[in-house]
Measured scan of single mutants.
Amino acid sequence: MASQGTKRSYEQMETDGERQNATEIRASVGKMIDGIGRFYIQMCTELKLSDYEGRLIQNSLTIERMVLSAFDERRNKYLEEHPSAGKDPKKTGGPIYKRVDRKWMRELVLYDKEEIRRIWRQANNGDDATAGLTHMMIWHSNLNDTTYQRTRALVRTGMDPRMCSLMQGSTLPRRSGAAGAAVKGVGTMVMELIRMIKRGINDRNFWRGENGRKTRSAYERMCNILKGKFQTAAQRAMMDQVRESRNPGNAEIEDLIFLARSALILRGSVAHKSCLPACVYGPAVASGYDFEKEGYSLVGIDPFKLLQNSQVYSLIRPNENPAHKSQLVWMACNSAAFEDLRVLSFIRGTKVSPRGKLSTRGVQIASNENMDAMESSTLELRSRYWAIRTRSGGNTNQQRASAGQISVQPAFSVQRNLPFDKPTIMAAFTGNTEGRTSDMRAEIIRMMEGAKPEEMSFQGRGVFELSDERAANPIVPSFDMSNEGSYFFGDNAEEYDN
């Protein structure tokens, strides 16, 4: 993207840094990872977990959730003011799984939030270390993106479920800051804005008074975040219109849905970061690795190297396929839920299948599930090659597409044709070009129609051997075009429920 120079890199967003050079960025990201790792080690000690239990991804998720809940100030305040039966607002906890007599047992633990905050700050040299908290939120978000298709949420806001490739980060909490905003897809931002506008339509006082002023500035800020994701002048001009509207209503909703559809071809720039579970960072720190000293990046080879040398386990339900569970977590670790499966298959070195073909449910185990038949197995999170994460949407291309997802959002900077089903997408653009945004709409449609099938995206960008740390010898991959490109292809993934 041309304006790259004016933006802070995501590592800076990730670490609240002012302008830093590459070495400083690597050190501050490393410091953040160190903090998460030290916190995780301490929690495993508190909970008396064995090494194996500490490497269980379900335990990692519970521990991450506990610290996120302990620092969720708004919710904590709300819980104190609106006490609900049987919930102690000062405590947080969740299921911890232990191996007892050759069987997995679930144990519900409860801790004072104050105590968890103390352990977290102690692991982070006394700081609140917001960057580390956001990092864990993005890992949870990436896992949700890989596990669930947001059909219901899309339909509720009037969008087409086939636009799911635009929904990265749709389950990120509001408090995820600049680093969170960077990884949100165009569809996620559109959905947040539509929800806001709908509230304004239904509630006369939404934009009024002292609160209304705050609401208005939040609305304009979200519009600017979305505008910054678009790469064409016409899309940005249309966002200006939406932002400046005196009284946002149905016309703005129409414009936003139009823009979301246009992003299936004229893709937005959305950041991709490899955020790993805390149970990967903990053992690495415990083994003596100093992330701050060595430096770390979320968008280069580092996460690949770390996963190459990590042992992570997962509980497996009786009829689940461990290899499929591994694929789910591998995609989440690489922030690749909406990437082209052919690119992923090449990088991973084994075939990556669409969601609907995987015999696996989510990673988390519900409290009512029976533990008797639970097994555990090693997650295979290694890769054959590594590639640089991208934040450009890439230019655009036609490809055989599917009944489910009709476009992709690249996660890796790797040369390819970008699949999208042009006739299906263009069919949504018939007729409606009147109104105050008509010239911009016409211009956007013209650009979409001009998108050429034979153009290559990320020209000359390749993948790298894991021994090639400096990215000196790019390998331009070859793809098996007979395979499906979309992950949520004609899909039956479970729906995400809060």
Score class of each variant (00 low, 15 high):
419 P>D: 10
425 I>W: 11
477 P>N: 11
254 E>L: 12
157 T>N: 01
468 D>A: 15
388 I>S: 05
467 S>Y: 05
125 N>M: 05
487 Y>G: 11
86 G>P: 02
123 A>V: 05
300 G>H: 11
285 V>H: 15
25 I>V: 09
108 L>A: 00
403 A>T: 01
390 T>L: 07
22 A>C: 06
487 Y>W: 09
185 G>R: 04
17 G>E: 12
195 R>T: 01
205 N>K: 02
488 F>V: 04
298 L>W: 08
423 P>A: 05
397 N>M: 01
481 M>K: 12
473 N>S: 13
354 P>C: 03
53 E>L: 00
124 N>V: 04
394 G>W: 13
115 E>F: 08
404 G>K: 04
210 E>W: 08
106 R>C: 10
27 A>L: 02
300 G>T: 08
474 P>V: 14
168 Q>G: 02
224 N>E: 05
458 F>N: 01
404 G>S: 06
343 V>E: 06
121 R>D: 07
354 P>N: 13
186 V>Y: 09
115 E>S: 15
271 A>I: 07
36 I>F: 14
4 Q>A: 00
399 Q>V: 14
63 I>R: 03
360 T>V: 00
218 A>D: 02
275 C>L: 09
388 I>T: 03
482 S>E: 10
415 Q>N: 13
385 Y>G: 00
191 M>I: 03
213 R>P: 01
248 P>G: 04
366 A>N: 07
389 R>C: 11
158 G>V: 04
396 T>M: 01
95 P>E: 01
15 T>A: 08
288 G>Q: 10
101 D>M: 07
217 S>Y: 06
268 G>R: 09
37 G>L: 04
160 D>S: 02
136 M>V: 04
76 N>E: 04
342 R>L: 13
127 D>K: 00
349 G>C: 08
171 T>F: 07
208 R>A: 06
308 Q>W: 02
159 M>R: 12
323 A>K: 14
31 K>V: 01
323 A>V: 13
211 N>G: 01
124 N>L: 04
469 E>V: 05
274 S>R: 10
21 N>C: 00
189 M>W: 04
488 F>Y: 12
245 S>N: 12
476 V>L: 04
287 S>M: 10
219 Y>D: 15
6 T>Q: 08
266 L>G: 07
124 N>W: 13
443 E>R: 09
328 L>E: 07
